[in-house]
């Protein structure tokens, strides 16, 4: 790795109650990179993101962000270091309208997008500002879920399956947005099951299986590794 790693996971183990889910995940993400976690249902991709975020509390090993150990910290402290999380279920609040949803996450440092820039990127959110957050379509909700973490100044984004269940046009749009974010210097750890989509946006891919990283494939090697990846993902 030539660039300095922003996020370093070493032997990360996580439990939900009695069940041991992550059995030692190690990975690196360099500043400005887009990295995906690929894997089947239940492999532990979401759990990895939640462990980084501190939302899966019972964890062991090392999660270093910007050189600082975070494995003992609570989610709000971790977030304030500059990590933002976009959950798989999108987490749009039904008791808040679109504008409130968008402006809910507090700005934690300078350098985030202004509201105008966000609206430039997601014009639909300006249009639907007054409606109840959960009344939006699935694609719009996904846009909202991504948009709201761009204002906070966090430059490291955890995106959990942003394309899940969405129409191809919208998937394409999300791909464009991810590329824009990359140009703007955001670092992204992306969970995906759709490696065709992943290969259009990511620099590298990790494959997760049974709570472990079992393989790493660089972005330009995807096509040569197609069969192997298909076997991993069971497609």
């Amino acid at each position: 790795m030539t660039r300095e790693s922003l996020l370093v996971l070493r032997d990360l183990q996580t439990w939900y109650g009695e069940s041991h889910i992550l059995h030692g995940v190690s990975l690196d993400v360099a500043e400005g990179e887009v990295v995906t976690l690929l894997g089947r249902n239940g492999a532990g991709k979401t759990t990895t993101l939640k462990s980084i975020m501190g939302l899966a509390r019972h964890r062991r090993g090392s999660v270093a962000f910007g050189g600082q150990e975070t494995v003992h910290l609570s989610p709000n402290r971790i977030a304030r270091m500059g990590i933002a999380f976009c959950p798989e279920e999108r987490g749009i609040f039904s008791s808040l309208n679109v504008r409130e949803n968008l402006t809910l996450p507090p700005v934690i440092r300078d350098g985030g997008m202004s509201l105008d820039e966000v609206y430039d990127l997601f014009p639909i959110l300006l249009e639907r500002g007054g409606s109840v957050g959960t009344k939006l379509s699935g694609g719009e909700q996904q846009m909202l879920a991504i948009a709201r973490i761009l204002r906070t100044g966090a430059k490291f984004l955890l995106l959990d399956e942003p394309t899940e269940g969405l129409a191809p046009v919208i998937v394409e749009q999300i791909g464009r947005i991810i590329n824009v974010l990359k140009e703007r210097g955001y670092t992204i750890l992306l969970v995906e099951q759709n490696f065709r989509f992943a290969s259009t946006v990511a620099d590298r891919h990790y494959v997760v299986e049974h709570g472990r990283i079992v393989d790493e494939v660089s972005g330009n090697a995807v096509s040569s590794n197609r069969e192997k990846l298909e076997a991993y993902l069971g497609v």
């Binding site: 975020m53 501190g54 939302l55 609570s74 989610p75 709000n76 971790i78 977030a79 304030r80 933002a84 999380f85 959950p87 987490g91 609040f93 039904s94 008791s95 808040l96 809910l104 996450p105 507090p106 934690i108 973490i149 906070t152």
Partner: peptide, 15 residues
């Protein structure tokens, strides 16, 4: 209101 709905996510926003 947001924390009433989903406290974990609001925590993950740094609150």
């Amino acid at each position: 209101r947001a924390a009433t709905e989903n406290p974990d996510l609001v925590r993950a926003f740094g609150v």
